[in-house]
């Protein structure tokens, strides 16, 4: 680790001000950033911790939509959404291990947009809105590729507005080592249609599988996607799976998510 300064602001405004310094870096739960620093792969001059900002903590239920503070930990989401959005709670309860879940935050995960992370799948499938200190960004516009989002420098994910579907389920087929998603599929059924988001599979990061959405919107059953095929083009190839394997898993996991949706 290289030396850095750290600030722990208690308001979003103070955090935004602190992030104006050159090479300042926002710090959520640090579950990606801290290991990166320890490997000396990043050298921010200053870390601005967001976890002390009360406005960014906790979950509010506005009827059909959850508002989740950006600094809310996975562990809190897992517990506090168990009744309101069980599929989200289930997803959160299977991220990493207890240490990760008690440190890592939803805002940090969405800002990082790891191509194999779980939260981008639920955000995209739920049609969430990413709320920052300056604006609101629809999930469809927010995720822009592997580790790439619509966030500007110094912009902070202060909250996520998450519509609650009628039925939903997340199926994660884990990569054996990291236990990130080798392929993860989140299926969300709303009154006006079905959204299917896929993580872990693509070089473009999280994305929607629109053919499946169309088929499932017409007939919400696992059999509805039987005739579809997933192209292996631009899917991730690594030690743990070929593009063809990932393409196959996208379909298998989608079917299982539909079957398990509740």
């Amino acid at each position: 680790m290289y030396a850095f300064d750290i600030e722990r602001p208690t308001s979003v405004a103070d955090a935004v001000a602190a992030l104006k310094d050159e090479d300042a870096q926002a710090l959520g739960g640090g579950q990606t950033l801290i290991p990166t620093l320890k490997q000396r792969l990043a050298a921010p001059s200053k870390l601005v911790s967001l976890t002390g900002i009360a406005d960014m903590q906790g979950i509010a239920n506005d009827g059909d939509t959850l508002r989740i503070g950006g600094a809310t930990t996975h562990a809190t989401v897992a517990v506090d959404t168990a009744d309101t959005y069980p599929a989200l709670a289930d997803l959160a309860s299977h991220i990493g291990d207890p240490a990760v879940r008690n440190r890592g935050t939803i805002g940090g995960s969405l800002a990082n947009n790891d191509p194999s992370a779980c939260y981008p799948a639920v955000a995209l499938a739920s049609g969430a809105t990413i709320i920052t200190n300056t604006r609101e960004i629809a999930a469809d516009d927010y995720f822009q590729g592997m580790f790439t989002t619509a966030l500007e420098d110094g912009e902070i994910v202060t909250a996520i507005s998450m519509p609650v579907p009628e039925k939903a389920n997340y199926q994660k087929f884990v990569q054996p080592a990291s236990r990130f998603a080798l392929v993860g599929v989140f299926v969300a059924k709303f009154a006006d249609g079905v959204r299917v988001a896929v993580t872990g599979a693509s070089n473009e990061g999280v994305h929607r599988w629109t053919e499946a959405e169309d088929a499932l919107s017409a007939d919400f059953s696992a059999g509805a996607i039987a005739g579809l095929t997933v192209s292996a083009d631009n899917l991730i190839a690594d030690l743990h799976g070929s593009p063809e394997y990932r393409a196959h898993l996208v379909k298998v996991m989608t079917g299982r998510a539909v079957a398990a949706a509740s």
Binding site: S178, L239, H240
Partner: peptide, 11 residues
Amino acid sequence: LLSASYMDYAM
């Protein structure tokens, strides 16, 4: 070494 950490080497 592609499997040089626990992110890629499964125990």
